[in-house]
Design a protein around this nucleic acid. Structure first.
Lengths: 207, 207, 207, 207
DNA sequence: GATGAATGAGCGTTCATTCAT
DNA sequence: AATGAATGAACGCTCATTCAT
């Protein structure tokens, strides 16, 4: 073959990597297998990425870019606080359906093997949402949509905790089973879940 | 040596395993090193546990037993819903301080490598909390502490999501950094965090 | 098998290693092949030696110990300077016949791949001969067997140069061919070579 | 670029190759790095040389041509045997200073990896010196400068052994350290070494 | 002819697992 | 029963070589 790699090929490689890492984890995923399944040679992985960790990180960033893009779009929609929350929840559902592996990779970095990069990644990944959510909440406070004596960053944190676990509960095996343990069949009724979580958040945000 | 293994020795082995798995993850932890550090031979690990995965699972269950014990104790205290919630939050803080590795292992099973056991473990681990929280909420509904038209299991689920991420945010590198990104120094003020989360949950539970 | 390795087995391993390194060089020798050919698993190589380099060094030291042992024996014989020289030359011939690979390994460390250890190894290996030869020459000077105004260490150096290249000329492919280019069939006549070199050295040592 | 390769460029390539092979050895030197450092593509190396070994051999011949040129010049000078020897020794010193890598490559072929070409190379490289030295010695014999009953080729061999190890002792890490072990600071005093070796050879050549 | 990105065989090393003692 | 040395499959990574441009 020996044809120059198109950027689509690199994208395919990242997608294959994401699937492999999501299914088997950073350590159990096999670089040689990923290369074979992507139809490229191992060599190109080591040409484009420093090592397995570097490739994993690239896959991760690729996944998170898409994820965060959807979130941003939802957040910057017009409307009241709760309208935007609704958009957010629906975006989360959509992402989980369209890119099941992305959320799994996201969850992966919170665990063991990637903890060497924990601090840096958290800054990179969470910083933006943290500031965005906090800003939206401050804004809502200013508009009187929520209590004025609330701690905005912490409210944002609790709020994102709910979203994050919803994401994971849609996509990660363990969290999905856990969701089922709690809610049974209702867990599968996306619309119902959104309504219930909306109510929960609405109340939590107070008047 | 060649002395029969005391159950004490087995406990020490599990503790060493938990620390190793928490620090390095299921795949990177080294069975031979764990044996050495516990002062036993690799042989006994393979006598008492089927394989590395089996040993990991045993470590996990050991950790979760302690964790769930604390939770149960807090939950079965006397008092109003919010009093029990407060006990719960404080128990979570205490566990995070006393057994930092336990929560990390808990988070570990939600990720990649252990997903083969996801369903089974989720049932084992989450089922009890799911039923306990749901029962407490139903009870609170009956007492009028929370709205009567609320979906108890789903409320329990959202509630546990908040608790779970608090646990992880106290103990797991990534989640701790994320907590810092959101809340800065306030993240380290346990008392303040408890108060804020109490308020959040109180509101979410509605009148 | 799984039987504990006897020290003979380790010796066999070293011998196999020496042959492999002598035939193919440090880099081209294959650790897995060496293990297979010795009837042990790769694992034991990495249990007894830190890495390929460490194993190579162990092989080297094993070879040189034997070599230096023979030299020492010859040197500590009774008799005049030239008698001892004769013993030395015959010992060199014997070693070359009995352990053809040992000299090749010795030559190996003077080249490329092992140059990282050059200084240390030179001290370890040459220091003893350097002192021994110099002492013998000083002694001969004192006895009036050689000129009194000669620089003993440098004479020892030139002398050892002649011995070293004789060693290599008996055992290393290139040096052997070179020997043939110079001396034709005479190169194969050990006795004749010894006599000629004795004469050469005798003259060089002066009256 | 895509300009035809000048012979100048090829020379630069060979020089870079020589440095790389001298520093890292045949196996550890990296063809791609050599190409990069010479400002040519890997492709041209494989156009002008059959493979890595072939390129190594070309580098070697390039180095030896220069080396042998200097030797020949010294040897064909006017004067007595010992005058020519002195020229030779000084030429060796000069080469070691001007082309440190050349001697290292020379030593490289005597070791492991290139032994496949040992015989052929030895003929190519040593044959000429062998005949030249032997001729000079025969001549000196005829002129009565050395004993008439000496074996000229063997004397030439011993003589070249001394020169060869002097070359290597000036340029190769291991041999240089060995030189130091024998002679300490005196090893660095070129003039002194030449004088001592002259005396040694003079005596060895006999009356 | 020159280029240099792509290829993939090959090897050093690790470590879960076994089993003779 | 407990031991721990031995095993060897498996995998990350390198780099000599090729060939489409």
């Amino acid at each position: 073959m020996r044809k120059k790699l198109t950027s689509e090929k690199i994208n395919e490689l990242l997608e294959t990597g994401i699937d492999a890492f999501a299914q088997r984890g950073l350590d159990r995923a096999n670089i040689n297998a990923i290369a074979r399944d992507s139809g490229v040679s191992v060599g190109v992985i080591y040409k484009y990425f420093t090592d397995k960790d570097g490739f994993f990180l690239a896959c991760l960033r690729h996944a998170l870019e898409v994820l965060k893009g959807e979130i941003d779009a939802a957040l910057s929609a017009e409307g009241s606080l709760m309208t935007r929350v609704e958009h957010l929840l629906r975006a989360i559902g959509r992402c989980a359906r369209e890119h099941p592996s992305y959320n799994v990779m996201y969850n992966e970095i919170t665990a063991g093997a990637s903890s060497a990069y924990a601090r840096q990644l958290a800054g990179e990944i969470e910083g933006i949402s943290a500031r965005a959510y906090t800003a939206v909440i401050e804004e809502a406070k200013a508009r009187g949509e929520i209590h004025s004596d609330v701690d905005a960053p912490m409210l944002a944190f609790f709020f994102d905790n709910l979203l994050l676990l919803l994401q994971f509960s849609y996509s990660c095996d363990y969290y999905r089973s856990r969701f089922g343990e709690y809610c049974g069949a209702a867990a599968a009724d996306d619309e119902y879940v959104v309504r219930q979580l909306m109510t929960f958040i609405q109340s939590a945000f107070g008047r």
